[in-house]
């Protein structure tokens, strides 16, 4: 499976060999399995310089045993999508995106249902990492990584580097989509400086 900035492709090794031998390396169109455009969003993207906003940055299998053909991807500018192979549809697993203000950990809402107005916020997603209950293979949640650790906000900076979302349920182990940024405790007695804050000299 290959994620590119022009879509997702699923092909066999033989198809790749044949493409190189017979068609200059161009895969047959049937290998493109879809593209998770969001209704009402793609038009807006078409009016701006997309850059790599639509690049696929990570792919992971949803459940190797129970749904081996379902998977999740991260798109650089949009976040997590789930591919339901049984229906052939994409589902966007981003209900909410919350940052945490550096220094006081107050909630900074970057996204809460209106993607189009939030394209400039916290949208450099590069990786999704499953988290199981400690010592088990039971899925508990996911970590979503952002390329940028901090975001300038009106009164300082907000943590946006790593987000966590629990699963929907023990049965439906897609991310619930309420992504909350990991921050750094402001309690300096019990906490060294946050992962993206340099410790000052002593």
């Amino acid at each position: 499976m290959l994620g590119t900035d022009s879509g997702l492709y699923k092909f066999t090794l033989q198809q790749a060999i044949d493409a190189v031998a017979n068609s200059g390396g161009v895969l047959p169109s049937s290998t493109q399995i879809g593209w998770p455009y969001l209704s009402g969003v793609i038009d807006s993207y078409d009016t701006i310089d997309k850059g790599n906003l639509l690049a696929v940055t990570d792919i992971m299998r949803y459940n190797s045993l129970q749904a081996p053909n379902d998977f999740m991807i991260t798109i650089y500018g949009l976040g997590v999508f789930y591919w339901d192979n049984s229906t052939g549809t994409w589902q966007w697993q981003m209900n909410k995106l919350e940052g945490r203000q550096q220094g006081n950990n107050s909630t900074i809402i970057f996204y809460d249902g209106n993607l189009i107005n939030n394209l400039d916020h916290a949208n450099n997603f590069t990786r999704i990492l499953p988290v199981n209950y400690a010592g088990t293979t039971t899925r508990q949640g996911y970590l979503l990584f952002n390329e940028e650790p901090l975001k300038e906000i009106t009164n300082g900076k907000a943590y946006i580097g790593i987000f966590y979302s629990p699963v929907i349920s023990n049965v439906d182990i897609r991310p619930k989509g309420d992504w909350v940024a990991l921050s750094a405790s402001t309690n300096m007695i019990n906490n060294d400086y946050g992962w993206n804050t340099t410790r000052p000299l002593q």
């Binding site: 950990n105 966590y164 921050s183």
Partner: peptide
């Protein structure tokens, strides 16, 4: 310092 799944918005990190 704690499991990430205990995220309460105030994560304790150690360099």
């Amino acid at each position: 310092k704690d499991p990430i799944t205990n995220n309460t918005g105030t994560v304790k990190w150690q360099q």
